[in-house]
Design a protein around this nucleic acid. Structure first.
Lengths: 337, 337
DNA sequence: CTCCTGGACTTAAAGGTTTTCGGAAACGTA
DNA sequence: TACGTTTCCGAAAACCTTTAAGTCCAGGAG
């Protein structure tokens, strides 16, 4: 804890110039003699002067601060987006004001007001699922970008992972390995993510002219459900040779149960997970081939588009960001692993 | 995107009073007639007036904002602390400015300057491990509280989990179950966390007058190492009846390998993990008894003490926060599970 | 000598809010 | 009427910085 903070006034006095000159010297403007500039900079350094961002913002109307409003307290999906955004901002001179509404609309409104009162230049809203959520952008004096969970309003700017495309990519990968009896185990159907991934599976199999092995099985996103689904599936569709799972947790459970029932992964059954949650995907045996939603990149992109929107170049619509298949041992061709 | 923001001037004009009166009415001060106050509030509501926090902060010298400086990009430990802090702040009217230095001292300095320039009222520094880290507090005009990773300077305020006590608690739990041949598998010894937990094990066993089963085994914090350690340990110390693991990942690996070698958990070997990382601890079979460091509570406490420090009531020193043993099936008494 | 140019610097205003102090009106009392 | 008190409201300063406009001076051209 040091003494009172120095203002530009102190710097100017110490350097023996007016505050206007001091300001110009500090901001690298031209009409200051080199010697004077030196004196000012030396004075500023000596007082360890930091310009007051409040005063600056008050004058310019720009705070170089954005609000990040998340509903996802547990943070599985919000955190990577947050980090991506923070990185995109941190590279410049932006700062992130973080608010967690914990899924409560009232609290969200409250945080929204607080952020506006702090005169943020823009807002990123991170959803807790890919289901569309009510827009907050109506009559807001700053631009808003939605990440992970899109806005219901198509005029807003949203960035979401391309779940349909990713699921199709996963199935195509299995098809390319020669698998023909592909099953699908996923999360609760009230999640748009689950429905989208099912749609992707359907499209890929249709394009290949193949039927799906059994019905899509829906349950919780958990490992426990993965085990349970494996038992059901190996009973009802014993001839399956591949499974696409809606999460790495489900996939990990599936692999475990399959192995206990004497099915080898990947030789007998190839398994693809979703999320690339590394604690699971790299530590299961075999390590999981899985879909990485590139959430950090999605967050970064959202931040960049927020910049653009702040500059008046908004890009309305729901933008689907490509996912990536991370290939590991659970889909190695037979005989390799 | 709406029109220009209303200022208190607009509110005053619309209500037909001066800005001074408007300010008093809005802030609930006494010397305003009830009817006048009504008019002002109605005008503010009509214009959806939000007081400009910049102007207010400029005047009062308080921004009601704190900086949260983390080095832990991956966020395993930082995130819960962050959430706890955010919750403690969010309850009031504080906001959190988030900065991630990604372990880079230069970047940290940069962020520090940016935060000070924004006139934060205080700072929370979240370490990436429990190893003491260089202080940033020297000659800072705002109070700083360290969470998870303490400052090297004992004059600073730090909150860390009580690893020694937690490890002793875990071992005592095993002793209470009647286990007498207790082994310890942990992470790399260059982590203070690993050394502290070893110390806790030693203290608890000494107090019970028992030797440790084998040497403490050090390796990565990973599941793979847990499996490897299990194989080594079951070979060299086949008579062990309990293991305390330095992480849930290690414990999960240990359980898996032990089961494959025909040892039943918990009947033959009781296992205790560390971190209570739920995706692992509740999904392994059996579910893991594990130490929960209460990081969210730690973050909340740090935030509360930051408030106190802002009010001039700092509490210097390294404060060890109690951990909690979450008891699950991996330490059930024989015959129960 | 005057006028003009350009460089180096200063003055003052602006941004939005809070707060202190003074003023005015209303009312009661001598 | 004169005066004191209370109640309500307004003027202005303060917070810190940036910037437009203005001042001053030296030096060159006419």
């Amino acid at each position: 804890m040091a003494t009172k903070r120095a203002t530009i006034n102190d710097v100017a006095s110490l350097a023996g110039v007016s505050i206007a000159t001091a300001s110009k010297a500090l901001n690298g403007r031209q009409d200051v003699r080199a010697a004077t500039r030196e004196r000012v900079l030396a004075a500023a350094a000596q007082l360890s002067f930091q310009p007051n961002a409040l005063a600056r913002g008050l004058l310019s109307g720009q705070t170089r601060t954005v609000g990040l409003l998340t509903s996802d307290s547990v943070g599985r999906f919000g955190i990577p987006v947050l980090l991506g955004a923070e990185n995109a901002f941190g590279a410049g001179e932006m700062a992130v004001l973080l608010c967690d509404a914990r899924g409560d609309a009232i609290r969200e409104q409250h945080h929204l007001r607080a952020l506006l009162s702090r005169r943020v230049d823009g807002l990123i809203v991170v959803g807790e699922s890919t289901d569309p959520r009510p827009s907050v952008s109506k009559d807001l004096p700053v631009p808003v970008v939605y990440a992970y969970g899109p806005s219901e309003d198509p005029e807003d700017v949203s960035f979401v992972p391309d779940d349909v495309g990713a699921a199709a990519m996963a199935v195509n990968h299995l098809l390319a390995l020669g698998r023909r009896r592909i099953a699908h185990v996923t999360g609760p159907t009230h999640y748009k993510a689950a429905r989208d991934r099912e749609e992707g599976v359907r499209l890929a199999l249709e394009a290949a002219g193949l039927p799906q092995a059994g019905q899509t099985l829906s349950g919780p996103w958990s490992q426990r459900w993965g085990r349970h689904a494996a038992e059901m599936l190996l009973m009802s569709e014993p001839e399956i040779d591949a499974v696409f799972c809606g999460s790495d947790q489900i996939a990990a459970g599936f692999v475990e149960a399959a192995r206990e029932r004497g099915r080898r992964v990947p030789d007998d059954i190839a398994v693809v997970g979703y999320d690339n949650w590394e604690v699971l995907s790299t530590e299961t045996r075999p390590a999981l081939t899985t879909v990485d939603m590139n959430l950090e990149s999605l967050g970064r992109t959202a931040a960049q588009h927020l910049f653009a929107a702040i500059d008046g170049k908004a890009t309305p619509g729901v933008h689907k960001m490509p996912c990536q298949l991370v290939i590991r041992d659970s889909t190695s061709p037979p005989g390799i692993s």
